[in-house]
């Protein structure tokens, strides 16, 4: 299967500053790729190069087998793009704005009406269609930007922070929409919200200093966490033994590497080499008669992986 989108050794320099430093990846139909990374890591710059807003200093972008640098117009017809901040002409209404986009994208009058109706229905834009965009709330503005990106039913969707500024309900809606679209399209989203990656992405790439520093499924990235497979134990009630006593017991359970406190009442038991220590820990807890408030295996902590990888320690 050939990739919908193929990026090879993309480099962007602004003067002496290298914003993107040799990024390569492929996205297949059905994949949702999440770009993660600190501000200024090069996520948006990479997106701007894929969509043809910025010209790369070096490297290639291939959209559905079309060289996007040699045939920019043809490549752009296949891409739907939500730029950072969802820019739109402020004095236009969403209705006029979407008509404008549809017309530039060459949709016929009938198709235009149907698509605009379907999309504005899907993302609940109907009731603001005749208000100037500058008077809309941040959430509605973002949805106008999304509608614009989806209008021509593109094969490739590039969404720069699609849920930024949305309230929790709207975030849920947008993630739902992305999941719904995913099987038919190749999608790239960038986000600061780590749980969003687990919620919608089939694959995540962590970018720092213009390079890809990690690339894998959200599960694989979580597997890199030192919390992965650790057992978290919460003790309840008064008269519990103190942390040092508990640690002295737990550290003797086979496979346990170390024991650390996590807040007031929690204890994290780290296994050696991601071994499973659940049984040993639970047997010990019942043997000692500890009152257990919570007991679970940590899948790994994305924020910790993110910090470790992007700060390089």
């Amino acid at each position: 299967m050939t990739a919908m989108l193929e990026v090879r050794n993309l480099v962007k320099q602004f003067g002496h500053f290298t914003a993107v430093d040799g990024i390569s990846f492929e996205v297949q139909r059905g994949e949702v790729l999440g770009f993660l990374g600190p501000n200024g890591a090069g996520k948006s710059t990479t997106m701007k190069m894929i969509t043809g807003f910025l010209g790369p200093t070096a490297g290639t972008v291939t959209v559905n087998q079309v060289d996007a640098l040699a045939n920019p117009i043809m490549a752009k017809t296949r891409i739907g793009y939500l730029p950072e901040g969802a820019p739109a002409y402020p004095d236009m209404t969403p209705a006029a704005f979407l008509n404008f986009i549809a017309s530039i994208r060459g949709l016929g009058a009938k198709q235009r009406r149907e698509r605009i109706a379907a999309i504005t229905e899907r993302i609940e834009l109907r009731r603001v269609m005749e208000q100037p965009i500058e008077t809309l709330s941040k959430g509605f503005k973002r949805r106008v930007g999304l509608a614009q990106a989806l209008l021509h039913d593109p094969d490739i969707l590039i969404l720069d922070e699609p849920t930024d500024g949305l309230d929790p309900n709207q975030k849920f809606q947008v993630r739902d929409l992305i999941r719904e679209l995913a099987p038919e399209k190749a999608i790239i989203i960038s986000t600061h919200i780590l749980e969003e990656v687990s919620a919608v992405c089939s694959r995540a790439m962590i970018i720092a200093h213009g390079r890809v520093v990690a690339d894998g499924t959200p599960g694989e990235l979580m597997g890199r966490s030192r919390f992965h497979n650790a057992v978290v134990l919460e003790l309840k009630g008064d008269g519990q033994p103190d942390f040092e006593t508990i640690r002295a017991d737990l550290i003797r359970v086979p496979g346990v590497a170390s024991v650390e406190p996590d807040g007031d009442r929690r204890v994290v038991v780290f296994p050696k080499d991601s071994a499973t220590v659940t049984d040993g820990v639970s047997q010990l807890a019942s043997a000692r008669g500890w009152q257990i408030g919570a007991f679970y295996v940590d899948p790994g902590r994305m924020d910790e992986v993110f910090r470790t990888i992007t700060q390089g320690n």
Binding site: K48, T51, G52, F53, I73, M74, K76, T77, I79, Y81, P83, E84, G85, P87, A88, Y89, P90, I101, I104, R105, G106, Q148
Partner: peptide
């Protein structure tokens, strides 16, 4: 200023 240039130049128009 408004960033719409990014929108315009990523639409299929020369």
């Amino acid at each position: 200023k408004t960033g719409t240039i990014e929108l315009l130049l990523t639409l299929p128009i020369s």
